[in-house]
Simulated scan of single mutants.
Amino acid sequence: MSYFTAQDEALHMAVSRDGHHFTPVNGGAPLLRSSVGTGALRDPFIGFGPDGMFHLLATDGWASPAILHAVSADLSTWSSPELMPVMTAVPGAHNAWAPEFFYVPDRQCYQLIWSSAVDPGDTDGDRDWQNTGQDHRIWGCVTTDFRSYSPAGLFFDPGFSVIDATVVHDGGRFVMAFKDERGVNELTTGHKHIKITAFTSLGGPFEPTNGPVSPAPVEGPALFRRDGEWVLIFDHFLEGRYGAVSSRDGLSWAPAGVVVPQGARHASVLTLPPSSPLRFQFEE
C-alpha cells in the first residue's frame, strides 16, 4: 500500500499478508520526498513498468499541471522524482491529480490517467481547491517506455465532474472505479461517492455506471483482489478514516473490513506475486 498523510505529503508504504491489515513500514516514516515542483507528493500510485522496475506516479500539489515520476528496483530506494508536464501544453489546464497507469495488452502500451480541470477562459488561477469543487474530467496519455508520451487527451467524460479514476484488468475487459465529484464537502452531501464502469478498449465505449457502491463523501478508490473477490477501498477524507466494500461478481457490493495506517490518505494497493523476494521484506 502506498499513501501520503495530511501532515507529511511524501511517499509512505505499508504491507499486508492478507489484504485485511496493512502495517506501516520504515517505522511509519516516508521512503521518498519530492524536491521538484511544489515539493508535495500526494496520491502515490505504484505499478510494474516495461523495464521490470516499479514506477511511482504522484500528484505535484493542488495546482500543478505536471505529475511526479520516480523508479525503484526494490520499493525501498527510489530515483529522484522528476516532473512529467502532462498538461502544460493544454490551454487552461489548472491541475493534474491522482495519476495512475495500467497496461494495455493488445496495444502493448501503458495508459496513464489523471484528473484535470480545464478552463481556457480562466487565467487568474485563484481557486479554493480544498473546499470548492471544480469541473474535472479524466485525462490521459499513452507510453511504451515511460520516457516519451503521446499528447494528453480526454479519457473519460460522463458529462459531470469526476476525479480519482483507477483501472484494473479483469479478463477481457477493464474495470474502472471513479469518484462522482459533484456535491459539496459536507457529511450530508449528495454525490461525492464511488461509481464503477468498464470498457474493453481505450476510448470506450464505457459500460453504464454501477453505483454508487460506496457511502459519501469519500475519494481515492483503489481496487485489488482478496480471497477470490474484488475489494474496493476509499478514503473518508472528512472523517480521517478508511472504508471498504467487496464483491465477487463486480455488480453487487457489500461492506467489508480493512485496517490501514493511521492518517493514511488516498492509498493505492499493489499485489506482489507469491514468488517475489520483495513480498514482505519491509515487515518489522
Rank of each mutant, 00 (worst) to 15 (best):
E82V: 15
G27P: 11
S34R: 05
V104T: 12
P151N: 14
L56V: 13
I163A: 04
F22N: 06
D119H: 14
M87L: 03
P50C: 09
T123I: 06
T38C: 01
L154G: 09
A152Q: 01
W78V: 12
L154Q: 14
S80C: 05
M84E: 07
A58G: 08
R147Q: 08
G121E: 12
F160M: 09
D124W: 04
G125R: 15
Y149I: 05
I163G: 01
P30H: 01
Q134K: 13
H69R: 10
G39T: 12
F101S: 04
L83M: 08
L57T: 14
I138T: 15
P50M: 13
P99A: 02
P50S: 13
N95C: 11
A29R: 08
P24W: 01
W139R: 01
Q111A: 10
R33E: 05
F45W: 10
S34W: 06
I113H: 01
V104D: 11
D122K: 01
P99C: 02
V118Y: 01
A89F: 03
W139F: 07
R127Q: 04
D157V: 00
E100R: 13
D126F: 00
T123Q: 15
L112S: 04
D135E: 15
L75A: 05
T143C: 15
G47C: 02
V118K: 00
S35D: 15
D128I: 10
M84G: 03
L112W: 03
W78T: 07
G49C: 04
P99D: 01
I113E: 01
P24T: 08
P81M: 06
T77V: 13
A96V: 06
D164W: 08
G92H: 10
G133T: 13
V162P: 02
D74E: 06
H55A: 05
V104E: 14
V86N: 02
I67M: 14
H94M: 08
L68I: 07
F101M: 10
A58M: 09
P105G: 09
P50N: 13
Y110S: 02
D106H: 09
C109P: 07
G121M: 04
M87R: 01
L154V: 15
N131I: 08
T38K: 01
N95V: 11
L68N: 00
T144H: 11
F48P: 03
